[in-house]
Simulated assay, not measured.
Amino acid sequence: MRVERSAEEVLHYLADFANTVEWDPGTEACVRLDGGPVVRGAQWRNTSRFRGRLTELTYRLERYDPGRLVFVGRNRTVTATDDIAVRPADGGGTLVHYRASLRFHGFARLAAPFLRGEFEGLADAVAERLPRVLTGP
């Protein structure tokens, strides 16, 4: 995704996972669990709605490098990894590469192939909303 903001601004905004309520259509709430500056190890409780049900994951910022963020969210049925790369674009603005992956545990693994289409729909919605939010005022 290309956005008309500096890479530094984009990285700073995305590093605070509480901002997912603004750009992830599935997120209903996301609350920081610790205090202080957003650094590697920071944690959030993310409440999302999927298929009409609320689910909570505890996310941890596993990597915070110039140009790269990796968040890992966990609960008893799934581990979600959000890997975000941010770099200046030729001619101005910023390129954002966002990759989300899910690994189901236990019996939930059996449902994964049947849920793929719905997860892809959520990914499409994020890809539509995130650039608007990042480019907005």
Rank of each mutant, 00 (worst) to 15 (best):
W44D: 02
E8D: 15
T79C: 08
R53A: 10
G73S: 08
V72P: 08
D90G: 13
G52F: 05
R99W: 15
R116A: 03
R32W: 03
A42F: 08
D90F: 12
V86L: 06
D34G: 08
L14W: 12
V31P: 10
R116S: 10
D65S: 09
G106E: 02
E128R: 13
L57V: 03
A80W: 09
R129K: 14
E62R: 13
R103T: 14
A111M: 07
E56S: 02
G121D: 15
P137S: 08
M1D: 10
R45Y: 04
N19T: 15
L69T: 06
V126K: 08
V3I: 03
R60D: 03
F104Q: 05
H105F: 04
R49Y: 11
R74N: 03
R60P: 03
T27A: 01
W23C: 01
N46F: 00
E28P: 03
D124R: 15
E118D: 15
T79Y: 08
F50G: 01
P66T: 06
D65I: 02
S6I: 00
V3K: 02
F104E: 01
V21R: 09
G117T: 12
L130V: 00
A112Y: 13
F50A: 02
D65R: 11
Y64L: 13
V78N: 10
F114S: 00
Y59R: 02
A85I: 06
L33G: 12
T55K: 09
L69K: 01
T58S: 07
D16F: 14
G36M: 12
H105L: 05
S6W: 06
M1P: 15
R40D: 15
E4L: 10
G35H: 11
P37N: 14
N19C: 05
E4P: 03
V86W: 04
F50P: 07
A29H: 06
D83M: 10
V31L: 04
A29V: 00
A123C: 05
G67K: 06
H12I: 01
R74M: 01
A42Q: 04
P25E: 05
Y13V: 02
R5P: 00
H105K: 14
P113M: 04
G73Q: 07
R109L: 07
G26C: 09
A112N: 07
P25H: 08
V39T: 13
